[in-house]
Design a protein around this nucleic acid. Structure first.
Length: 283
DNA sequence: AAAAACCTCAACCGCGTGTCA
DNA sequence: GTGACACGCGGTTGAGGTTTT
């Protein structure tokens, strides 16, 4: 379906749209990237079908939009998902499910596509290895009471300034009282995962998505979030709160993103062992 | 060294929603 | 109110890279 809308309607655009018949698919070339980058830099985002035509690209508007958002857009973060980001993904997914774009709002520079891929390749793989559904209570509990506390500990270990992260004592206790304590797990997990649609909306109203303007605040932003998370996974988090109170994060000082990815793989290996042992124990 | 299996992630697709004439 | 179109989202695919056998 070829669309001829207003927007960037110049004579050259009109001419091109008449000539255009074939649409390119597949990986983008350097030349295409350059064309799109230059055009959007000058004219701005939006009207993607027009962008495709006027920039001289034989691509669909959709394809241009996706390429821009996931790759060319400034401040796109690439590379391994950090421990902090993993933790946030787990937590936010427990609240919102597969609302990737929503989750991505709280991970500056990360795209919904990246988060979605992370979830599918890493998290769902874990569930598969445990032979349980990713949405099952068993797996959710494992995430909340084993995996997330472990992540927090890892984060603490890699954080030079530990003053903003709570002591591990809480976490250790939590880890030791994992899914064998059914009642405790149940009450908390249910609070986090069985919110009604309207509750979700009220959560939205209390949380400020990270914007391009505060990308550089990511360290303190994540640290403050993690402070909340420490309470959350250790059981001291008050689930009756309407949402994450992270509005203030946006006013924090600028700092580099903390943590490293060096223990990323070992974390997963550790986690495999933890979860596997947990499952064996439960059985 | 080569083949097979597995993993990652960029990109596509279909659908729902918003906007505008 | 309705239709056409743009946009955004989530699910899915498959090429290419990596690891295992």
């Amino acid at each position: 379906m070829e669309v001829h809308m207003g927007g960037f309607s110049s004579s050259t655009c009109d001419q091109r749209s008449e000539e255009e018949v074939d649409v390119r698919k597949g990986p983008w070339t350097f030349e295409e990237d350059s064309l799109l980058m230059n055009y959007v830099t000058i004219h701005g985002e939006g009207r993607w079908n027009s962008v495709a035509r006027c920039a001289g690209l034989k691509r669909t508007g959709k394809s241009c939009r996706l390429r821009w958002l996931n790759y060319l857009r400034p401040n796109v973060r690439r590379g391994n998902i950090t421990l902090q980001e993993q933790l946030m993904i787990l937590e936010l997914h427990s609240r919102w499910g597969n609302r990737w774009s929503k989750i991505a709002q709280y991970l500056p520079g990360r795209t919904d596509n990246e988060i979605k891929n992370y979830w599918r390749t890493r998290v769902q793989k874990q569930a598969k290895q445990l032979k349980c559904d990713v949405n099952s209570k068993q797996f959710r509990d494992a995430m909340r009471y084993v995996w997330m506390p472990r992540l927090l500990e890892r984060i603490r270990a890699t954080t030079t300034d530990s003053s903003t992260i709570q002591p591990t004592s809480n976490l250790t206790t939590t880890t030791e009282s994992t899914s064998t304590h059914e009642d405790k797990s149940t009450s908390q997990v249910h609070h986090s995962t069985e919110l009604s649609g309207s509750s979700w909306d009220s959560v939205d109203a209390h949380v400020s998505p990270a914007s391009d303007a505060n990308l550089d605040n990511s360290q303190n932003w994540s640290e403050l979030y993690l402070n909340n998370m420490s309470g959350c996974v250790s059981g001291s988090w008050d689930w009756s709160k309407p949402g994450l109170d992270i509005n203030g994060f946006e006013t924090q000082n600028n700092n580099e993103w903390i943590g490293s990815d060096e223990s990323f793989e070992s974390l997963w290996n550790d986690e495999n062992n933890w979860l596997w042992q947990q499952q064996q124990y439960d059985h």
